[in-house]
Computed example of a mutant assay.
Amino acid sequence: MTDFTRTTQPGPDGRGRPPHAPAAAQHLVGTSFKHEHLADIFADGLKDGFFEVHAENYMGAGGPPHRLLAAIREHYPLSIHGVCMSIGGPGALDAAHLARFRDLVARYEPALVSEHLAWSSHGGQFFNDLLPLPYAKETLEHVCEHIEQVQNAIKRPILLENPSTYVAFASSTMSETDFIRSVVQRTGCGLLLDINNVFVSATNHGFSAAAYLDELPFDRVGEIHLAGHSEQRDDENELLLIDSHDRAISEPVWNLYRDVVSRTGPRPTLIEWDSNLPAWPVLRDQAMTVRQIIVEHETSLAEAPCHGG
């Protein structure tokens, strides 16, 4: 097992706090960082906020992207979110890519570092997709080995994001939640819980999002993602949801988030919005809805009757 395993610590409300998640960080609320929003962020930013960037957009040595990211970093914590490590792939990790990822983490010292439970490269070819993997013993070995390589390179645990999927492998021998629990236990990594991904996959595959959430290791959740999804129809005219990150969050996803917060307490929560970008006030309002839900949760705890002996 990796040297980065940490024992979950109790938070002030008695709930578990995941590794590398100080109590003060639990209330962070963030959004994806887009360069066109920089001036508006400085004019009307986020109290107790943070911003997330895709690692691959900042792997060059310098230039305008780094100047803008450095400006944000002076005022806000960062989350660095990898999308191309191909942690779920059967082949070896790309050494050059891992080195660039390591250097980026060292350069900006982000509050949070994450990657996807997916694969996106094979035989030297790279694909512009986060592709699903079969949940089986052999795949588990590859994923754990890759996560430990990443954690050893950056000298800290990562958060692993649950996927949104549109197909499932008949060769899988374990459930996705069993697979995730095994990875977390073996590697000491945390979980980036993407609630929209849960809702999208549950709708597409016909299972219960609530039941899926029941099977996750909530004590290892270090960050939560919320995003919008689009609706399509498949070849049989059945509803198909796409994790598109191009619109406001749906009410069913908000409801799942409320349930998660009631069970975990606050966790750093990010609004993902990557295309069809709205004006900054729209994105900020989505983040403020997160803040409102957290405040409502904490108010309900404070008002709950005490039944001490």
Rank of each mutant, 00 (worst) to 15 (best):
A168L: 14
G16H: 02
T5F: 01
Q26V: 12
N276Q: 14
D48P: 03
H116W: 10
G89T: 07
H75L: 06
Y212V: 02
Y212K: 08
W119Q: 07
G11W: 00
A55K: 03
H245R: 07
M85D: 00
A106E: 12
D3E: 14
E303K: 07
T187V: 08
N276D: 14
R17Q: 13
D103S: 14
F4C: 00
H122S: 14
S114M: 09
N197I: 07
D214T: 01
S171G: 00
D13N: 12
D48Y: 10
E148R: 11
D129L: 09
R102K: 15
A287T: 04
P134T: 08
D129H: 10
L241V: 00
Q9D: 01
H97F: 13
V183Q: 03
S300K: 13
H229E: 12
A170K: 15
S275C: 11
A202W: 01
A202D: 01
P305V: 06
A99I: 02
R100P: 00
A55S: 15
I41F: 01
L192D: 10
Q232L: 12
D259M: 13
Q185R: 13
S300H: 13
H205A: 06
L270A: 02
R247W: 00
A23Y: 09
L140R: 13
A95I: 05
P22Q: 11
Y166K: 06
T165V: 15
C306Y: 03
Y58S: 05
S250R: 04
V200S: 07
K34I: 09
Y58R: 06
P278L: 09
N57K: 04
F126M: 09
L160P: 04
T269M: 08
I195V: 12
Q151W: 01
L68K: 14
E115N: 09
T8P: 01
Q185N: 05
N255I: 00
Q9Y: 01
G206H: 01
G63Q: 09
P90D: 10
A170Y: 13
E272A: 11
H97K: 06
P65S: 06
L301Y: 01
S300P: 00
E36S: 11
P10W: 07
Y76G: 04
V113P: 13
P110N: 07
P268R: 04
F207L: 05
V221Y: 00
A170H: 14
D243Q: 13
V200G: 08
E52Y: 04
Q125P: 02
G309T: 14
D235G: 08
G309H: 15
I158C: 11
D48Q: 15
E251K: 02
L192Y: 08
V183H: 08
G60A: 09
T264Y: 05
N197Q: 06
D48V: 06
E238C: 14
Q149C: 05
H122Y: 15
Y135V: 08
H142Y: 15
A23C: 01
S171A: 10
R73K: 15
D129N: 12
F33Q: 02
D103A: 15
S300T: 10
L256N: 06
H27F: 09
G222L: 02
A21G: 04
L93R: 10
N276C: 12
I224E: 02
A302D: 10
N57C: 05
K155P: 00
A55D: 02
F50H: 12
E115V: 06
R263E: 01
C189N: 05
L226Y: 03
A202P: 01
H97P: 00
